[in-house]
């Protein structure tokens, strides 16, 4: 079950009226979309507004999404058009070209990073989250740290990671999960979610 197929499943559920499925897509792509929009709009608060508008437009246009392209590629186009309209409406010059096509949208990493400048509290929260993640990463056992790094930063598949780390795919899956869960355990108090939730 590929990433695209998972998105497709979520889209199909949203198309059947399940708003929560669309929420999952918002969570998954919010920062990626924000990174894209920050190429056109420098102010972080404005980027957030435009991103929100893009998600709403995408939701309204869901019946027309037929799965011919990946969901993010489709969302990307909506985001670009929303950003252009936003800039034009404010009398600013809209980019005539994005400088990269939609296929590249999946991978670019060099956008200026967004800074959360909404409120001092939110900025503090962002810093705290960043510190917890980085500190916990430093404390992870080597095999967990390498597994999650290869997955999240290098974007490798479990199969590739299993080759690099010379271990079964099941072990890779377990290591990545344990790394995530270790970090999540430290984050939950900060995020205000229950520590003791268990399945």
């Amino acid at each position: 079950m590929s990433d695209r197929e998972i998105d497709q499943q979520l889209v199909e559920r949203a198309q059947k009226g399940d708003k929560r499925a669309f929420d999952m897509l918002v969570v998954k792509y919010q920062r990626k979309l924000g990174r894209l929009l920050s190429r056109f709009i420098r102010d972080a608060a404005e980027v957030e507004d435009v991103a929100q508008e893009a998600f709403i437009k995408a939701y309204r246009a869901l019946p027309s999404f037929r799965g011919d392209s990946a969901f993010y590629t489709w969302l990307y186009r909506i985001g670009i058009n929303t950003a252009k309209n936003y800039l034009v409406a404010r009398g600013r010059r809209a980019p005539t070209s994005t400088g990269f096509d939609s296929e590249e949208a999946e991978g670019f990493e060099d956008a200026e990073l967004l800074r959360d400048v909404n409120t001092p509290e939110a900025e503090l929260m962002s810093k705290q989250i960043g510190n917890v993640v980085n500190e916990t990463m430093a404390e992870l056992p080597e095999e967990l740290r390498m597994a999650i790094t290869l997955r999240e930063i290098e974007g490798l598949s479990y199969e590739d990671i299993s080759t690099i780390m010379n271990c079964p795919i099941g072990t890779v899956r377990s290591r990545i999960f344990r790394a995530r869960e270790t970090i999540a355990e430290r984050l939950r108090p900060l995020l205000g979610t229950s520590k003791d939730k268990r399945w």
Partner: peptide
């Protein structure tokens, strides 16, 4: 949400305000 947040932080993606979603 939490697992995605971890991935975003590790990739260096700065965040929207915490209540964006």
């Amino acid at each position: 949400r939490t697992y995605h947040l971890i991935g975003d932080v590790l990739r260096g993606d700065s965040m929207f305000s915490s209540g964006f979603a």
